[in-house]
């Protein structure tokens, strides 16, 4: 008899909720047991009355006592999530999915490219990479956001700028903005990394990832050293409901992190 139920959530309690941007919030949860996860993995969060949504984990892997998610308010469930108050309870299932390739970064330069809310699943990787900077080569974080006001973890990002190369660009800003504007790929510079050895981790809108990959390929970064986090409709997160299929993969169990070599043939095809 199977008694564990991968489809049934456990109960977690909201410790804190913090507004990141106009439509994005960071939720800190307490779980009955320490919550161990790997950078890049995600949870299914359940709000009674609203339903369940897949949300990547944004916390620090060395802090299993606080489970952190950064959530953008885009639908019913996420609206319910951001309306939570400290002490409220919700359901959590996870962690699920293939993580960022933290096992291959030793001795190599690492380039992290994030677009919009795509920084949320990359934050645990940046924190872990930052903590092990002695063991890796150069660390570079490139971040594209819609506007300066839409940048996640803005204060933390300033700290990253002091510790390693961290650059941001926005699509639009008030005339007083003196920072970079335009595509994130413009910030990719071979000055920051060795293209023949770098490990690249990319997360953002699919179209932005496509452009980032093209820039990296032009510099000679091989497909199997470019890692992406994909997004598809997820219901079970356990590889049994079929919703998140992407070509021959289930994004929930074979991903969400893929290397580009795995998905290259699917990337250009419409409606896969």
């Amino acid at each position: 008899m199977i008694t564990t139920d991968v489809l049934a959530p456990v109960v977690a309690t909201v410790r804190e909720i913090q507004q990141e941007t106009q439509d994005t919030f960071t939720l800190t949860l307490e779980t009955p047991e320490p919550f161990n996860f790997k950078p890049g993995q995600f949870n299914m969060l359940y709000i009674p009355g609203a339903g369940e949504a897949a949300v990547s984990i944004s916390g620090d892997v060395t802090q299993p006592h606080e489970l952190i998610h950064t959530i953008r308010e885009v639908g019913n469930v996420t609206r319910g999530l951001v309306a939570l108050k400290p002490g409220d309870q919700l359901g959590v299932r996870g962690p699920f999915g293939r993580p960022w390739p933290m096992d291959v970064v030793d001795g190599r330069d690492v380039l992290v490219i994030a677009g919009g809310i795509g920084l949320a699943p990359l934050r645990p990787a940046v924190l872990a990479l930052s903590a092990k900077r002695a063991e890796i080569g150069r660390l570079t974080v490139i971040y594209g956001a819609r506007s300066p006001e839409d940048m996640l973890y803005a204060r933390e990002f300033l700290g990253w700028k002091d510790a390693f190369v961290a650059r941001a660009t926005v699509d639009t800003a008030s005339p007083s903005w003196r920072g970079n504007m335009g595509v994130v790929t413009k910030l990719i510079s071979p000055v920051d990394f060795d293209p023949t050895r770098v490990i690249a981790m990319i997360c953002g809108p699919e179209i932005m990832m496509r452009f980032a990959i093209r820039s990296l390929s032009a510099l000679g970064v091989e497909d199997d050293r470019i890692f992406l986090s994909m997004e598809r409709n997820m219901k079970c997160a356990a590889g049994i409901c079929g919703h998140c299929q992407y070509g021959n993969y289930f994004v929930c169990k074979d991903g969400p992190v893929f290397d580009y070599d795995q998905v290259r043939k699917l990337f250009g095809v419409k409606e896969v």
Binding site: R72, E73, D171, V183, K186, P205, I207
Partner: peptide, 14 residues
Amino acid sequence: HAASLQAMDVYAPR
């Protein structure tokens, strides 16, 4: 590339 990506407003909330 830059102009087409800007026109698409890829980070806009949907």
